[in-house]
Design a protein around this nucleic acid. Structure first.
Lengths: 106, 106
DNA sequence: TTGACATGTGACCTTTTGGTCACATAACTT
DNA sequence: AAGTTATGTGACCAAAAGGTCACATGTCAA
């Protein structure tokens, strides 16, 4: 399995995306902290975090017996750059902004 | 399954990402054209295209008995915006550019 | 209308993946 | 040292996904 594959496979699961959302909101959490946010056993969460780490979407740092988790946005940016070039980026951004504007008016 | 899930699941398969690459390179191709680029039966390719279309990553237009396929970059942009805010975007872009520079020097 | 061409459908099988559990290691506290 | 806390490992099972095939529909051309 190459790096790309690991990243996309990692993003394919809703629990893992939720973990990224949590880390996007606040970095540096432990397994224990993250576990309490999911309706799943500790083992399940640990397994998901391992998948995210092997994909490079999460980086970790040990502090004693705790393991701190951080979000790494670089692979996300690379996905963007793969299918949106500089020229179309402007159009797409405009479209997305328009979408948000319309949704707010509802 | 919600919209998010459809998009990420669709991106999780390497054959489907390759199809997006083909459409990124040149839009408006038929199933027959795309089929010839994959080491897979026509049925497999059709199934993958259907998944991409249901996810909104590909939009289609009928022309007689042919079906033309086009890449839609909007869902890709939304993935980006989910985990990269305006503030960090600048840092990440710098990092990615640096990465490219280093790789070119190899 | 008859035949060829382009695509669609549902069943089927094999492989992969998500989640849990019993068990194990490592570090802090008293 | 002993008990508690935080995390790691491998086996296991149920559910989902990738790919193929027999069969069906719709469109063009002569």
């Amino acid at each position: 399995m190459d790096d790309d594959d690991r990243v996309f496979k990692a993003l394919a699961d809703p629990s893992r995306r939720f973990l990224l959302d949590l880390l996007f909101e606040r970095d540096g959490r432990t397994l224990g902290e993250l576990e309490s946010e999911l309706a799943m056993t500790r083992f399940g969460v640990a397994k998901h975090l391992r998948v995210l780490e092997e994909a490079g979407l999460v980086v970790t740092r040990r502090s004693g017996r705790e393991k701190l988790h951080f979000l790494n946005p670089v692979p996300i940016r690379l996905i963007h750059d793969r299918w949106i070039d500089k020229y179309t980026e402007h159009h797409v951004t405009t479209l997305v902004d328009l979408k948000h504007t319309l949704e707010e008016e509802t």
